[in-house]
């Protein structure tokens, strides 16, 4: 069993006919994801990758029974696309779009709160159950089925960690990219809760970075609810200059909050095992998983 999706989850893609969506959805299908169609306003009735295209999410859901959507819609329309899916009652959205205006995400966040929809992202690499299915843009090469659950704010760091734990013959139960944007859907706390309930996950890895408050919230949650499984964390950006934007909108220190050292201290105090060096995350996971 995995969290959030599995090989029988029916998936549609919003912005299906775009170049990026086409490239990644083809690979998702090849990987085993049950993609059942796509949504592109104005292109309903056509076909793409041998699958039907619909004008609206509601029509697509009605016709295919899809419960999950991969959102590849460009930044200026992405928030409306997400809200359309929320209104259509989709259960899980994975938004890979980067550079969505933050106030658009504030609007999305409010709509999410009064719905039963879960949003992964935006600016997310997606979600992957090794060997079974994936939604998003994550590469497939070194991952393998296993017992480590990964929740990450960085796609490239996730690949790095998968390689490192692979050298210890450790695989993943589920890997989730929560995205690097300031306002996003699921956070580390949501992921922790799901991983703790998942019988197939024996150890959880959180890959954080400067900025935002996901790490602090995870620390507060774990202080109040001691982890039933080992949790390992790495936080990038200990030596990043302050007041500078490093990569994307989610990584700027505002008001001393989001400082890597403070995040590490908070997580450590909550009982999380800290990987102090990026080169030793795999080793730290190995030791924690064995303990």
């Amino acid at each position: 069993m995995a969290i959030l999706i599995d090989s029988d989850t029916k998936v549609i893609c919003q912005g299906f006919t775009g170049a990026q969506a086409t490239y990644h959805m083809e690979r998702a299908i090849a990987y085993g994801t049950k993609v059942v169609g796509g949504v592109v306003p104005g292109k309903g009735g056509r076909g793409h990758l041998g699958l039907p295209v619909f004008d609206t999410v509601a029509e697509a859901r009605e016709a295919t029974g899809a419960t999950a959507s991969a959102v590849f819609v460009p930044p200026r329309n992405a928030a409306d696309a997400i809200i359309e899916s929320i209104d259509a009652g989709m259960e899980l959205l994975v938004c890979v779009t980067e550079r969505i205006p933050v106030l658009d995400m504030v609007r999305v966040k409010q709509r999410l709160e009064s719905s039963n929809t879960r949003l992964i992202g935006p600016n997310s690499q997606g979600i992957m159950i090794p060997g079974r299915c994936k939604i998003g843009v994550m590469p497939a090469h070194l991952e393998r089925p296993g017992k480590v659950g990964i929740a990450s704010r960085s796609a490239s760091l996730t690949s790095e960690v998968i390689e490192q734990i692979s050298t210890y013959r450790l695989g993943q139960s589920t890997s989730i990219g929560i995205g690097g944007d300031p306002v996003h859907g699921m956070g580390f706390v949501d992921c922790l809760k799901l991983f703790f309930e998942d019988p197939d996950t024996e150890c959880v890895v959180l890959l954080g970075e400067i900025g935002g408050s996901d790490e602090e919230e995870a620390a507060a949650y774990l202080s109040a609810n001691p982890a039933p499984k080992p949790v390992v964390a790495y936080v990038a950006g200990l030596h990043a200059p302050t007041e500078r934007r490093m990569g994307h909108a989610g990584t700027v220190n505002v008001f001393g909050q989001g400082d890597a050292a403070a995040k590490i201290d908070a997580l450590r105090a909550a009982g999380v095992t800290i990987a102090t060096s990026a080169a030793e995350i795999g080793l730290t996971v190995r030791q924690a998983a064995r303990a």
């Binding site: 990450s152 704010r153 960085s154 796609a155 490239s156 760091l157 690949s159 790095e160 690097g180 890959l207 970075e209 400067i210 790495y234 990038a236 950006g237 200990l238 030596h239 990043a240 490093m246 990569g247 994307h248 990584t251 060096s277 990026a278």
Partner: peptide, 10 residues
């Protein structure tokens, strides 16, 4: 990737 680049700097 920002995360990996930050980790490399660290």
């Amino acid at each position: 990737g920002a995360g990996l680049a930050l980790a490399t700097v660290d």
